[in-house]
Design a binder for these strands. Structure first.
Lengths: 246, 246
DNA sequence: GCTAAATAGCGTAGCAGGTACGCTATATGC
DNA sequence: GCATATAGCGTACCTGCTACGCTATTTAGC
């Protein structure tokens, strides 16, 4: 019966109603929602305690009655920003299900482009994060993998998916800041790459692979799907290997 | 002959020596090295322009003669912190080579635990980053994949590797901050997970998978290798498919 | 009801960090 | 030598997080 960490208690709304004192004019949910709206509109850098309070018509310090610190607020945002996953379609195989899941993650996070800039503070513990975790584990239900292997597969998948999203969002942000740095990427590399020192890269440049980077598109899921399918091919082989006896 | 971005020019040391004025008492390299040492010793949060300048026996504002902004300094750090990759052993197959490469990345980044907290500002453009990129492309030399496919494979691999490292370092940092939050992770989940709402996760808990999370170890490469091998299995299948004619 | 205790909101202030600006000293090109 | 470009730096401004203490408000316990 140890104490739960305060952020976990807040995310699961476990504070028991204490009675005495004035009625709160704010709730943690209001604060979190307001911070998320602000981040959506102006980016994570615009989220300061002062700006959030201003939006709510309160003073900066009022927030600290509901939230221990700004870091705690960021943790709350990171769970609240993810909506619940859509329920999986019935009767699909694990591979279709994980692809469906991965695209759901991508769609959910793309609604909040600051998401992947949040610091990771610990393993997933909020209700929405755990719901996504559960959904991915559920997709592996019929594979016969042992539970521990399912966790390994899902953790690797999460790492890949979050990493890919982070990369594409950060590149998109960089592109928005400074489009010319991208359209000239091929040219910059050509200026700087010595084919004696970086021969493999020079071959790629010669093949013109980076000449079209100017056509950079945040919404392009090509790279995302490509890497995802590679990983899932690996999972397929792993399942065959582990479950060959059954 | 357009201008190179100033951070790229700095990383490749392309500033041409201009003559007039006092001799600089500082170089960009000094500043970068000093910032890296400070981050190694006290974390990225300790890296302020003031602290870096103090280490160098200069005033804060002196740094701005060499570096446009703190963000630019971070970009310089992100390239300088990676050493050059060790040369690949001769005569190994692509899979051994990429595993060797991935472990090299992990070792290199683990020397600078703040690395994965850096914001991503654009595609790799510094000499060290490009050297690593080249090394991974070189590992696929004999596969017969077209250049564009190599790039896709390597990008996916980088995403996975960096993501996994980021996750493990951030979790390790969280663990150092607050070990009890980790040793009680299983217990927290048990308190909070309802087996009706999150059935797959509940099964994992029942199987006791999270009971040993207390034995959290930053150095454990198990998860890293597991996911890596899954991905490489996928690459293997991809190569077979694409190159079946040859 | 009445009182004591707990609590919400908030004003103030301290501290840290990034950086614009302008001054001074110094080295070089002409 | 003199004009000019540049290195270093002191000052000052702004933004951001948050500790502290005051006041007003509500309720538990009597």
């Amino acid at each position: 019966m140890s104490e739960l960490p305060s952020d976990v208690a807040l995310m699961w709304r476990l504070r028991e109603g204490s009675r005495r004192g004035p009625k709160p004019s704010l709730t943690v949910e209001d604060i979190t929602r307001s911070a998320i709206e602000l981040a959506d509109a102006e980016g994570l850098a615009a989220v300061s305690m002062a700006r959030v309070a201003e939006r709510l018509g309160n003073s900066t310090m009022a927030l600290y009655r509901h939230v221990k610190s700004k870091d705690e607020l960021l943790v709350l945002m990171s769970d609240a920003a993810l909506e619940r996953p859509e329920p999986m379609p019935e009767g699909i195989d694990w591979r279709t299900a994980l692809t469906f899941w991965a695209e759901g993650v991508m769609v959910a996070i793309r609604k909040h482009r600051w998401y992947s800039k949040l610091p990771i503070s610990g393993p997933p513990a909020g209700p929405n994060n755990l719901a996504w975790f559960d959904a991915a584990l559920g997709a592996l239900q019929d594979t016969g993998l042992p539970e521990e292997a399912k966790v390994g597969v899902v953790m690797g998948l999460m790492t890949y998916v979050h990493g890919e999203i982070r990369l594409s969002l950060d590149l998109a942000a960089g592109f928005a800041d400074n489009p010319s740095a991208f359209s000239t990427y091929g040219a910059v590399l050509a200026r700087v790459v010595d084919s004696r020192q970086l021969p493999a890269l020079a071959r790629v440049l010669d093949a013109g692979v980076f000449d079209t980077v100017g056509a950079f598109d945040e919404e392009s899921d090509e790279d995302f799907d490509f890497g995802l399918q590679l990983y899932l091919d690996g999972v397929e082989r792993f399942i065959e290997r582990v479950c060959q006896g059954s």
